[in-house]
Write a protein that binds this DNA or RNA. Sequence first.
RNA 1: GGAGAGGUGGCAGAGUCCGGCCGAAUGCACCGCACUCGAAAUGCGGCGCCCGACUUGCUCGGGCCGGGGGUUCGAAUCCCUCCCUCUCCGCCA
Length: 422
Amino acid sequence: MLDLKFLVSNPHEVKDNLARRGEEIDIDSIIELNQKRKDFIKEVEVLKNKRNEVSKKIGELKRQNKDISEITKEMKTVSNKISEYDSEIKMIEEDINGILIRIPNMLLPEVPDGKDESENILSHEWGNRREFDFDPKPHWELAEKLNLVDFNRGAKIAGSRFSVYIGAGAKLERALINFMLDKHSENGYTEVIPPLLVNSATMTGTGQLPKFEDDLFKCERDGLYLIPTAEVPLTNIYAGEILQGENLPLKFMAYTPCFRREAGAHGQDTRGLIRQHQFNKVELVKIVTPETAWEELKKLLEDAEDILRQLCIPYRVVKLCSGDVGFSAAFTFDIEVWLPGQKCYREISSCSIFTDFQSRRAGIRYKVKGKKGTEYPYTLNGSGLAVGRTFLAILENYQNQDGSIVIPEVLRPYMNNVEVIS
RNA sequence: GGAGAGGUGGCAGAGUCCGGCCGAAUGCACCGCACUCGAAAUGCGGCGCCCGACUUGCUCGGGCCGGGGGUUCGAAUCCCUCCCUCUCCGCCA
């Protein structure tokens, strides 16, 4: 969330930012509420000071066995007044927080203007799109024919947007997971197996709550939510803690299934593996000092891109424009893979810098040696990569005319050296 | 699920029975200074977080002892409630 002090002293910047994102939130009412809050605090603190002093005196008088009934009665009314003020202040603070927690992050100046994904800016491209001497099929046809994924039985067991990976399909998925984890391990990320269910404080820390409750699966009875990405548990590992500055940057990675309700995506990508309620993802998360944030984001992006390069799958990287950057993010690079079966690019990774937005929400701070006070670190994350989408990208890019699939060389050691699935 | 014990500053650990002089002893860690060629050891001093005020100061005030609520003039301390940890029993992958 934004720093209240920043908001109060820079209301125009905050409003401009909302405009760039195409959102509307009443900023002035926060400023008014905050002024009211300060006024009440000023008054109640005078009373509390009095109460503290008199209470001290009462202690002394009591020890001397003197009569305190009169002074006690007087203080009773002071105390009552204090609790009235306190509850008023608390209500105001709840109001302020209720708005503040729904304000999106400030975009960095590097974010290009634009209303939606159509105005994202190409950063760079890699790889050559393969020339096919036949009409390449979409992955769902390939997967079904080879019996790698059973969409119908997934729907039978769980519902639409669920699928069953079978045999070589399941093996290929697992090979991808292990390949990605091993690669990132070499690049210094610490492997983590986090909880897949988390509480609401954790979801609030990274920004999924309160605004995006409808996109989450919730276990009502236990007050727990299925994670939509490992970003959530990984970023919150140090929630509420004070880190030592010299230990930054911290680099974590995790493979987890991810769960999304996809509310509002009815009718979109209903076929195939593109948009599932449950999918596998390897996620990269960094906690860094503000000075190194850009450098670390570029490295993270590089780490994610490297997976596609090793797999020899063409892709492009785009800078998200102001209207497309997510709620918590301040800047985002998307990596999009080429899918010849569908003749389009699809997002396979989103690498973002969150500035201090998440760390402030989650209460992650760090201390610099010799400096007093604490500071909020920047958090970064990116998919490295979405496994299901990598799986389908392999199918579409490595397909043969007969419907068989060549296994990319780097994956063969993870698949008993199988070269072709047919 | 049942019974019990406990959650205090970066860590360890007193204080809680008998409410006030406790934002909190002591030790460790950390940071200055002294000693030293340097280091260790030792000695001295410092050492939490958040909010508010203005005369922006090595200032003043308020709040914080797992979260929330209550009793009281006054709560780390008493009561209620929730969360978490540990031990034992039961059940179970």
